[in-house]
Simulated scan of single mutants.
Amino acid sequence: MKFCPACGNQVNLAIPPGDNRERFVCAQCGEIHYQNPRNIVGTVPVWDRKVLLCRRAINPRYGFWTLPAGFMELDETTTQAAARETLEEAGARVEIQELFSLLNVPRARQVHIFYRARLLDVDFAAGEESLEVKLFDEASVPWSELAFASVEQTLRFFFADSASGNFGLHTGDVVHSLHAD
Rank of each mutant, 00 (worst) to 15 (best):
A81W: 03
S130E: 06
R93S: 12
F167S: 01
V174P: 03
S130M: 01
G172T: 07
S150K: 07
S177Y: 01
A117H: 09
D123R: 14
Q97A: 12
A139E: 15
R156L: 12
F124M: 09
V151Y: 07
E138S: 11
R156V: 14
P106W: 11
F159A: 02
A92I: 07
L135C: 07
T171L: 08
R118N: 10
L87T: 05
D161K: 03
A90R: 03
A81V: 05
L87K: 06
S164V: 11
S144Y: 12
G172V: 05
R109P: 00
A83S: 13
L74P: 09
I113H: 08
D121E: 08
H176L: 14
D123F: 09
R93H: 14
G165I: 10
M72N: 10
L74A: 12
T78P: 00
F158S: 01
L155V: 06
L74G: 01
S162P: 00
G127L: 12
K134M: 11
Q97E: 15
V111F: 14
G91C: 06
S162R: 14
A92C: 13
T78K: 05
D137P: 00
V174M: 11
V151K: 07
E73S: 11
V141F: 08
S101W: 07
S144C: 09
Q153I: 13
E76P: 02
S162E: 15
H179G: 00
A163E: 06
F114L: 15
A82L: 09
R116Q: 12
R118F: 01
E95M: 04
E132S: 11
L119V: 03
L103T: 04
R109E: 13
H179E: 10
L169K: 07
F167D: 00
E95K: 13
Q110G: 02
W143R: 01
L178E: 05
N104F: 14
R118Q: 05
G70C: 12
F148I: 01
H170S: 01
E128K: 11
D123P: 00
A147N: 04
F159Q: 05
W143N: 03
V122E: 13
D123T: 13
L119P: 00
L87Q: 09
P142G: 04
D161N: 08
V105Q: 05
A81D: 04
T154K: 03
M72V: 07
S162V: 02
G165E: 10
I96H: 08
V122G: 00
A108L: 10
A160Y: 05
D121C: 01
Q110I: 09
R109V: 14
V105E: 02
A90I: 10
S144R: 14
E152D: 07
R116N: 06
A125R: 14
S177H: 06
T78N: 08
T154W: 04
V94A: 08
A147D: 02
E85F: 02
V133H: 02
F157V: 00
P142Q: 10
F114Y: 15
D123N: 15
S150W: 12
V111N: 12
K134F: 06
R116P: 00
A139N: 15
A117N: 08
L99I: 11
V141S: 02
F159N: 03
F71I: 14
L119C: 01
S162K: 11
T77R: 05
R118H: 07
G165F: 10
H112L: 06
V105Y: 04
